[in-house]
Protein backbone atom coordinates (compact mmCIF):
# COMPACT_ATOMS: atom_id res chain seq x y z
CA UNK A 1 0.00 0.00 0.00
CA UNK A 2 1.27 3.42 -0.95
CA UNK A 3 1.58 5.23 2.35
CA UNK A 4 1.20 8.99 2.40
CA UNK A 5 3.25 11.09 4.68
CA UNK A 6 1.05 12.48 7.41
CA UNK A 7 0.72 16.18 8.04
CA UNK A 8 0.99 17.20 11.71
CA UNK A 9 0.28 20.87 12.25
CA UNK A 10 2.28 21.17 15.46
CA UNK A 11 5.38 19.96 13.65
CA UNK A 12 4.70 22.31 10.74
CA UNK A 13 4.26 25.28 13.08
CA UNK A 14 7.49 24.41 14.84
CA UNK A 15 9.28 24.20 11.49
CA UNK A 16 7.95 27.58 10.42
CA UNK A 17 8.94 29.17 13.72
CA UNK A 18 12.40 27.71 13.44
CA UNK A 19 12.76 28.77 9.84
CA UNK A 20 12.68 32.45 10.80
CA UNK A 21 11.12 34.16 7.80
CA UNK A 22 8.49 35.64 10.11
CA UNK A 23 11.21 37.96 11.41
CA UNK A 24 10.79 39.91 8.21
CA UNK A 25 7.16 40.68 8.86
CA UNK A 26 5.86 43.70 10.74
CA UNK A 27 3.00 43.44 13.17
CA UNK A 28 0.48 44.84 10.73
CA UNK A 29 -1.81 42.44 8.97
CA UNK A 30 -1.78 43.25 5.25
CA UNK A 31 -4.87 45.07 4.03
CA UNK A 32 -4.76 43.73 0.50
CA UNK A 33 -7.80 41.97 -0.82
CA UNK A 34 -7.96 38.36 0.28
CA UNK A 35 -6.42 36.18 -2.41
CA UNK A 36 -4.14 38.95 -3.71
CA UNK A 37 -0.94 37.83 -5.34
CA UNK A 38 0.99 40.41 -3.36
CA UNK A 39 0.80 38.03 -0.43
CA UNK A 40 2.81 35.50 -2.39
CA UNK A 41 5.45 38.08 -3.25
CA UNK A 42 5.59 39.23 0.35
CA UNK A 43 6.11 35.67 1.47
CA UNK A 44 8.90 35.10 -1.02
CA UNK A 45 10.68 38.36 -0.12
CA UNK A 46 10.57 37.40 3.54
CA UNK A 47 11.94 33.98 2.74
CA UNK A 48 14.69 35.37 0.54
CA UNK A 49 15.77 37.93 3.15
CA UNK A 50 15.77 35.17 5.70
CA UNK A 51 17.80 32.87 3.53
CA UNK A 52 20.34 35.65 3.04
CA UNK A 53 20.25 36.46 6.77
CA UNK A 54 19.92 40.17 6.03
CA UNK A 55 19.84 42.25 9.20
CA UNK A 56 16.42 43.91 9.26
CA UNK A 57 17.82 47.30 10.16
CA UNK A 58 19.96 47.32 7.04
CA UNK A 59 17.00 46.90 4.70
CA UNK A 60 15.26 49.93 3.38
CA UNK A 61 12.04 49.63 1.39
CA UNK A 62 10.78 52.55 -0.61
CA UNK A 63 7.44 52.61 -2.32
CA UNK A 64 5.10 54.95 -4.14
CA UNK A 65 1.33 54.98 -4.27
CA UNK A 66 -0.95 52.10 -5.14
CA UNK A 67 -1.69 48.71 -3.66
CA UNK A 68 2.00 47.85 -3.74
CA UNK A 69 2.69 51.15 -2.05
CA UNK A 70 1.43 49.55 1.13
CA UNK A 71 4.14 46.94 1.10
CA UNK A 72 6.68 48.65 3.41
CA UNK A 73 4.01 48.78 6.10
CA UNK A 74 3.95 45.01 6.21
CA UNK A 75 7.68 44.39 6.25
CA UNK A 76 9.93 44.72 9.23
CA UNK A 77 12.58 47.01 7.83
CA UNK A 78 13.16 50.70 7.20
CA UNK A 79 10.41 51.77 4.84
CA UNK A 80 9.49 54.89 2.99
CA UNK A 81 6.03 55.30 1.47
CA UNK A 82 6.50 58.22 -0.81
CA UNK A 83 4.72 59.96 -3.60
CA UNK A 84 3.17 58.32 -6.57
CA UNK A 85 5.86 57.17 -8.97
CA UNK A 86 8.64 58.79 -7.06
CA UNK A 87 9.94 55.80 -5.21
CA UNK A 88 12.85 55.23 -7.58
CA UNK A 89 14.49 58.63 -7.11
CA UNK A 90 14.06 58.48 -3.36
CA UNK A 91 15.42 54.96 -3.20
CA UNK A 92 18.37 55.99 -5.28
CA UNK A 93 18.97 58.90 -2.90
CA UNK A 94 19.02 56.57 0.06
CA UNK A 95 21.40 54.18 -1.62
CA UNK A 96 23.73 56.95 -2.70
CA UNK A 97 23.79 58.28 0.86
CA UNK A 98 24.46 54.96 2.56
CA UNK A 99 25.86 52.15 0.50
CA UNK A 100 25.61 49.65 3.34
CA UNK A 101 21.87 49.53 3.11
CA UNK A 102 20.00 47.01 1.07
CA UNK A 103 17.47 49.15 -0.71
CA UNK A 104 14.28 47.95 -2.34
CA UNK A 105 12.11 50.07 -4.54
CA UNK A 106 8.67 48.62 -4.58
CA UNK A 107 5.81 49.63 -6.75
CA UNK A 108 3.03 48.48 -8.95
CA UNK A 109 2.75 48.73 -12.69
CA UNK A 110 1.04 52.12 -12.38
CA UNK A 111 3.68 53.49 -10.08
CA UNK A 112 6.77 52.13 -11.81
CA UNK A 113 5.77 52.10 -15.43
CA UNK A 114 2.99 54.71 -15.40
CA UNK A 115 3.56 57.88 -13.45
CA UNK A 116 7.09 56.93 -12.53
CA UNK A 117 8.00 55.30 -15.81
CA UNK A 118 10.18 58.18 -16.66
CA UNK A 119 12.50 57.38 -13.84
CA UNK A 120 13.04 53.79 -14.86
CA UNK A 121 15.45 54.17 -17.80
CA UNK A 122 17.61 56.48 -15.77
CA UNK A 123 18.06 54.31 -12.73
CA UNK A 124 18.80 51.37 -15.06
CA UNK A 125 21.51 53.09 -17.04
CA UNK A 126 23.06 54.51 -13.90
CA UNK A 127 23.10 50.98 -12.42
CA UNK A 128 22.54 52.21 -8.88
CA UNK A 129 22.55 49.21 -6.61
CA UNK A 130 18.94 48.96 -5.63
CA UNK A 131 16.52 46.12 -6.20
CA UNK A 132 13.34 47.13 -7.90
CA UNK A 133 10.31 44.93 -7.34
CA UNK A 134 7.70 45.63 -9.93
CA UNK A 135 4.40 44.22 -8.59
CA UNK A 136 2.69 43.89 -11.92
CA UNK A 137 -1.01 43.09 -11.66
CA UNK A 138 -1.77 44.75 -14.99
CA UNK A 139 -4.42 47.09 -13.62
CA UNK A 140 -4.99 50.07 -11.37
CA UNK A 141 -6.32 48.40 -8.26
CA UNK A 142 -6.49 51.23 -5.77
CA UNK A 143 -8.50 53.47 -8.09
CA UNK A 144 -10.73 50.50 -8.86
CA UNK A 145 -9.77 48.92 -12.11
CA UNK A 146 -8.59 51.28 -14.83
CA UNK A 147 -6.19 50.25 -17.56
CA UNK A 148 -2.54 50.38 -16.61
CA UNK A 149 0.61 50.38 -18.64
CA UNK A 150 0.70 46.60 -18.69
CA UNK A 151 -2.98 45.88 -19.22
CA UNK A 152 -3.18 43.65 -22.29
CA UNK A 153 -4.40 45.20 -25.51
CA UNK A 154 -8.11 44.86 -25.87
CA UNK A 155 -8.80 43.97 -22.25
CA UNK A 156 -11.93 45.61 -20.91
CA UNK A 157 -11.37 47.81 -17.91
CA UNK A 158 -13.33 50.49 -16.15
CA UNK A 159 -11.64 53.19 -18.18
CA UNK A 160 -11.79 51.28 -21.44
CA UNK A 161 -15.07 49.50 -21.40
CA UNK A 162 -14.74 48.50 -25.02
CA UNK A 163 -11.23 47.26 -24.56
CA UNK A 164 -7.88 48.77 -23.77
CA UNK A 165 -6.64 50.51 -26.95
CA UNK A 166 -3.03 50.71 -25.78
CA UNK A 167 -0.46 47.99 -26.31
CA UNK A 168 1.01 46.89 -23.00
CA UNK A 169 4.58 47.69 -22.09
CA UNK A 170 6.90 44.72 -21.89
CA UNK A 171 8.76 45.32 -18.67
CA UNK A 172 11.41 42.69 -19.35
CA UNK A 173 12.13 43.94 -22.84
CA UNK A 174 12.09 47.49 -21.53
CA UNK A 175 14.50 46.70 -18.76
CA UNK A 176 16.76 44.86 -21.18
CA UNK A 177 16.52 47.76 -23.55
CA UNK A 178 17.23 50.20 -20.74
CA UNK A 179 20.31 48.06 -20.11
CA UNK A 180 19.45 46.99 -16.62
CA UNK A 181 22.20 44.73 -15.33
CA UNK A 182 19.88 42.21 -13.73
CA UNK A 183 16.55 41.32 -15.24
CA UNK A 184 14.29 38.60 -13.95
CA UNK A 185 10.68 37.65 -13.75
CA UNK A 186 8.77 35.81 -11.04
CA UNK A 187 5.20 34.71 -10.59
CA UNK A 188 3.34 35.33 -7.34
CA UNK A 189 2.12 31.76 -7.25
CA UNK A 190 5.60 30.27 -7.51
CA UNK A 191 7.10 30.73 -4.08
CA UNK A 192 10.27 28.73 -4.58
CA UNK A 193 11.01 30.27 -7.96
CA UNK A 194 10.54 33.78 -6.60
CA UNK A 195 12.72 33.16 -3.59
CA UNK A 196 15.51 31.93 -5.83
CA UNK A 197 15.26 35.01 -8.04
CA UNK A 198 15.05 37.42 -5.11
CA UNK A 199 18.16 36.01 -3.53
CA UNK A 200 20.08 36.45 -6.75
CA UNK A 201 18.65 39.94 -7.29
CA UNK A 202 19.52 41.14 -3.80
CA UNK A 203 23.01 39.72 -4.05
CA UNK A 204 23.53 41.35 -7.44
CA UNK A 205 25.78 44.41 -7.34
CA UNK A 206 23.95 46.96 -9.40
CA UNK A 207 20.43 47.77 -10.41
CA UNK A 208 18.19 44.71 -10.32
CA UNK A 209 14.91 44.77 -12.08
CA UNK A 210 12.49 42.10 -10.92
CA UNK A 211 9.25 41.88 -12.77
CA UNK A 212 6.58 40.09 -10.74
CA UNK A 213 3.46 38.78 -12.32
CA UNK A 214 0.50 38.74 -10.02
CA UNK A 215 -3.25 38.67 -10.48
CA UNK A 216 -5.56 41.41 -9.24
CA UNK A 217 -8.30 39.25 -7.80
CA UNK A 218 -10.70 42.11 -7.40
CA UNK A 219 -10.61 44.01 -10.66
CA UNK A 220 -9.16 41.65 -13.19
CA UNK A 221 -11.31 38.69 -14.01
CA UNK A 222 -9.26 37.77 -17.09
CA UNK A 223 -5.73 37.31 -15.83
CA UNK A 224 -6.61 35.05 -12.95
CA UNK A 225 -4.44 32.83 -10.82
CA UNK A 226 -5.12 29.77 -12.87
CA UNK A 227 -4.71 31.50 -16.21
CA UNK A 228 -1.35 32.81 -15.04
CA UNK A 229 -0.27 29.54 -13.52
CA UNK A 230 -0.88 27.79 -16.80
CA UNK A 231 0.53 30.56 -18.95
CA UNK A 232 4.06 30.88 -17.58
CA UNK A 233 7.01 28.58 -17.99
CA UNK A 234 10.36 28.38 -16.24
CA UNK A 235 13.38 29.42 -18.28
CA UNK A 236 15.27 26.35 -19.29
CA UNK A 237 18.45 25.63 -17.40
CA UNK A 238 20.47 25.82 -20.59
CA UNK A 239 19.80 29.56 -20.99
CA UNK A 240 22.96 31.66 -20.72
CA UNK A 241 22.10 34.58 -18.42
CA UNK A 242 25.03 36.61 -19.62
CA UNK A 243 23.72 36.64 -23.18
CA UNK A 244 21.59 39.77 -23.53
CA UNK A 245 20.44 38.95 -27.04
CA UNK A 246 19.32 35.50 -25.94
CA UNK A 247 17.56 37.19 -23.03
CA UNK A 248 15.86 39.59 -25.42
CA UNK A 249 14.79 36.65 -27.56
CA UNK A 250 13.30 35.00 -24.50
CA UNK A 251 11.62 38.24 -23.51
CA UNK A 252 10.12 38.62 -26.95
CA UNK A 253 9.05 34.98 -27.18
CA UNK A 254 5.33 34.27 -27.56
CA UNK A 255 5.50 32.23 -24.38
CA UNK A 256 6.04 33.87 -21.02
CA UNK A 257 9.11 32.78 -19.14
CA UNK A 258 9.96 32.89 -15.47
CA UNK A 259 13.42 33.11 -14.01
CA UNK A 260 16.57 35.17 -14.51
CA UNK A 261 16.75 36.53 -18.06
CA UNK A 262 19.92 38.47 -17.83
CA UNK A 263 22.67 39.23 -15.38
CA UNK A 264 25.81 41.21 -16.02
CA UNK A 265 27.95 40.68 -12.95
CA UNK A 266 30.98 42.34 -14.43
CA UNK A 267 29.47 45.76 -14.84
CA UNK A 268 30.25 48.01 -11.90
CA UNK A 269 27.45 49.62 -9.99
CA UNK A 270 27.11 53.40 -10.10
CA UNK A 271 28.99 53.90 -6.89
CA UNK A 272 31.67 51.39 -7.77
CA UNK A 273 32.09 53.10 -11.09
CA UNK A 274 32.40 56.47 -9.39
CA UNK A 275 35.08 55.06 -7.15
CA UNK A 276 36.87 53.57 -10.09
CA UNK A 277 37.00 56.80 -12.06
CA UNK A 278 37.88 58.88 -9.03
CA UNK A 279 40.63 56.58 -7.81
CA UNK A 280 42.09 56.31 -11.28
Amino acid sequence: MDHIERFYIDEKLADIKKDGFLNYRSKELPTWCPGCGYFGITQAIAKACNALSLPNENICVVSGIGCAGRYPIFMKAYGFHTLHGRSVPIASGIKLANEDLTVFAVGGDGDMLGIGGGHLPHIARKNIDITLFLFDNMIYGLTKGQSSATTPLGQKTNSHTKGNPDSPLKPISLALAYDASFVARGFAGDLDGMQDIFMKAIRHKGFSFVHLITPCVTFDKVNTWDVMRNGYHPIHESHDVTDRIAAMRLAEDQRFFLGVFYQDEKRPSYQEYLRQIHSA
Partner: peptide, 25 residues
Protein backbone atom coordinates in the same frame (compact mmCIF):
# COMPACT_ATOMS: atom_id res chain seq x y z
CA UNK B 1 1.81 25.33 4.87
CA UNK B 2 4.74 25.05 2.51
CA UNK B 3 2.65 26.43 -0.35
CA UNK B 4 0.39 28.83 1.55
CA UNK B 5 0.99 32.51 0.83
CA UNK B 6 -1.16 33.71 3.76
CA UNK B 7 -3.44 35.60 1.40
CA UNK B 8 -6.55 34.99 3.57
CA UNK B 9 -8.75 34.23 0.60
CA UNK B 10 -9.98 31.23 2.54
CA UNK B 11 -10.68 33.29 5.66
CA UNK B 12 -12.58 35.77 3.55
CA UNK B 13 -15.08 33.18 2.36
CA UNK B 14 -15.29 31.22 5.58
CA UNK B 15 -18.84 31.05 6.90
CA UNK B 16 -17.69 31.27 10.53
CA UNK B 17 -14.41 31.66 12.35
CA UNK B 18 -13.22 28.26 11.19
CA UNK B 19 -9.93 29.36 9.64
CA UNK B 20 -7.38 31.22 11.67
CA UNK B 21 -4.06 32.88 11.29
CA UNK B 22 -2.46 30.77 13.95
CA UNK B 23 0.40 31.48 16.30
CA UNK B 24 0.28 28.18 18.17
CA UNK B 25 -1.73 25.07 18.69
Amino acid sequence: TSQCIYCSACIDVAPRDCIKITRAV
